[in-house]
């Protein structure tokens, strides 16, 4: 009934979320149809022309009570048997110590997604506020223990297919929300909090990362791109980035899709303010 509108199922848990959506919409539809049919019948049957005098002795207690009990039971089953277990599975941490897990930091800011990869050693370098600049949006300290090989991109998140992902989500300024409709993933990025997000992409392709919480005048254009690709493509992406970022001048490179965002960051500069430059 609702399938025609749903985005593609890009993650391992997407079918479960869609199952909840489908079941709850069937329940809603059944309730509305049954109840609506009764409503229309009552309006026709008890219109003034057909029923000139009200029947004051009329009561309909028992069926009403049973239908209410049935609704409560259906909601209870939906909640306890289906929705809660899926939610717990989705929110409780999986075994992220497994070496196969991809771990990426995503640092939101007005109006871009900074993506921080741990690099070849699999460990993140330190980040410090004092180092934040237009060329170093996450304030990465390259001289720190694990920082030399880290990679940073803007609005360009690459992930290997069929491997669990842990995204460590945070924000530099205001509340944003990391939403990838195709992955059935959405999580607020709250400044001061580190919010982990888990999913396993199972569909290759490119998907929108949409900021889903009003974050200012540029909220509508705070768009990133998620590329889900094979292991080899992913490895090639990382090494190409490493060649640019770590091999040469330390800094950040935005790929073609995020060209706009990089321009904004550069134009704003360390002392810049929010302008009306987007017009």
């Amino acid at each position: 009934m609702i399938d025609q509108w749903l985005p593609p199922q890009g993650s391992a848990h997407a079918p479960e979320i869609d199952l909840v959506l489908r079941l709850v919409h069937w329940l809603m539809f059944a309730l509305f149809a049954g109840w609506g049919a009764y409503f229309v019948w009552v309006l026709i049957r008890f219109r003034e022309g057909r029923q000139p005098e009200p029947d004051l002795a009329d009561t309909r207690g028992r069926p009403a009570l049973w239908s209410e009990i049935a609704i409560v039971a259906a909601e209870g089953v939906l909640l306890v048997v289906i929705a809660l277990p899926i939610w717990f599975r989705q929110t409780l941490p999986p075994d992220t110590t497994a070496p196969s897990t991809t771990v990426v930091r995503v640092i939101a800011e007005q109006y871009a997604w900074n993506i921080h990869y741990p690099g070849a050693d699999g460990e993140f370098g330190e980040t410090r506020i004092e180092l934040v600049s237009s060329s170093n949006p996450v304030g990465l300290d390259r001289s720190s223990l694990h920082g030399a090989d880290d990679l940073v991109t803007i609005n360009d998140l690459h992930l290997p297919i069929n491997r669990p992902v842990e995204i460590r989500l945070s924000s530099k300024d205001v509340i944003h929300s990391f939403g990838v409709a195709a992955m059935r993933v959405k999580q607020d990025a709250v400044p001061g909090l580190l919010s982990p997000v888990w999913f396993t992409p199972v569909l290759a392709g490119t998907f929108d990362i949409a900021c889903s919480q009003l974050c200012g005048l540029g909220h509508y254009r705070m768009k990133g791109q998620l590329t889900v690709e094979s292991e080899t493509e992913y490895a090639a992406f990382l090494s190409a980035e490493a060649a640019i970022q770590v091999g040469g001048v330390p800094g950040v490179r935005a790929s073609a899709v995020s060209h706009d965002a990089q321009e904004q960051v550069v134009a704003r500069g360390p002392t810049g303010t929010h302008g009306r430059d987007d017009q």
Binding site: L6, P7, E16, I17, V20, L21, V24, H25, L27, M28, L31, F32, E75, L78, L79, A83, L84, I86, W87, Q90, T91, S177, G179, A181, R184, V185, K186, S212, Q213
Partner: peptide, 18 residues
């Protein structure tokens, strides 16, 4: 009725803020 899928956290994930 359309509050139901929003009240279940699992189906709220795709629908929240839409």
């Amino acid at each position: 009725l359309t509050g139901l899928p929003l009240g279940l956290a699992a189906s709220d994930i795709p629908l929240h803020d839409t």
